[in-house]
Amino acid sequence: MSNPEPAQNLFARPLELPQLLSVQSQAIVSRILVKHPSGSITLFAFDEGQSVEEHTAPFDAMIHVLEGEAEVSIAGEWHLVRAGEAILLPANVPHAIRAPKAFKMVLVMLRRPSQ
């Protein structure tokens, strides 16, 4: 997809999220829709075989698979998440993602308030 719309042009109108980015060969593609210090909303498209290695983040997160299916590890336990399904990831817990086949997802991250 060439010349994507600026994020500010996406507010206050219905969106077909899967249409906002394309799967690219042997790549992971991302598009930030909203980003604030308190969190973000980002679209991702993973080609088959792509992965994000285990890591932690200081955010509670939700992965919602839009198309295809993803394998998501949380604290070493793998889960298959299919189109239309979501999985919640707790902050500071190791997690990873891999693509058994191409898929698209939206990632919502929220920073926990300081205690």
Rank of each mutant, 00 (worst) to 15 (best):
S2A: 15
S2P: 08
S2T: 13
N3E: 07
N3V: 08
P6E: 11
A7G: 06
A7M: 13
N9E: 14
L10F: 07
A12H: 15
A12W: 11
A12G: 07
R13T: 12
R13K: 15
R13E: 10
E16Y: 09
E16M: 13
L17D: 00
S22A: 15
V23D: 00
S25W: 09
S25N: 12
S25C: 10
Q26F: 05
A27R: 14
V29A: 12
S30Q: 06
I32L: 14
V34K: 09
V34Y: 02
K35W: 04
K35N: 06
H36D: 04
H36P: 05
H36C: 05
H36V: 01
S38H: 07
G39T: 09
G39K: 14
I41F: 12
I41S: 10
F44T: 03
F44I: 01
A45I: 02
A45P: 05
A45R: 00
F46M: 13
D47Y: 01
D47P: 08
Q50G: 01
Q50E: 09
S51H: 13
V52P: 01
V52Y: 10
E53P: 03
E53H: 14
E54V: 04
E54Q: 06
E54G: 09
H55K: 08
T56H: 06
A57V: 11
P58M: 11
F59S: 01
M62K: 07
I63E: 00
I63C: 00
I63W: 00
I63G: 00
H64N: 06
V65D: 00
V65W: 07
V65M: 02
L66V: 02
G68T: 02
G68W: 07
G68V: 02
E71C: 07
E71A: 03
E71T: 04
V72R: 01
V72C: 08
V72S: 10
A75D: 12
G76R: 07
E77D: 03
E77L: 05
W78T: 04
H79G: 06
H79M: 08
L80D: 07
V81P: 03
V81N: 07
V81Y: 08
V81S: 11
R82F: 11
A83K: 06
G84F: 08
E85A: 09
E85L: 04
I87S: 02
L88D: 05
L88V: 14
L88I: 05
L89F: 09
A91D: 05
N92M: 10
V93M: 12
V93K: 09
V93D: 09
V93E: 11
P94E: 02
P94M: 03
H95F: 06
A96V: 11
I97H: 12
A99C: 09
P100W: 06
P100I: 04
P100S: 13
P100A: 08
K101I: 04
F103I: 13
K104D: 11
M105K: 08
V106M: 15
L107H: 11
L107K: 11
L107C: 05
M109G: 04
M109S: 14
L110F: 12
L110E: 14
R111P: 06
R111S: 15
R111L: 12
R112Q: 14
P113I: 10
P113Q: 06
P113Y: 01
P113C: 07
P113K: 15
S114R: 06
Q115N: 13
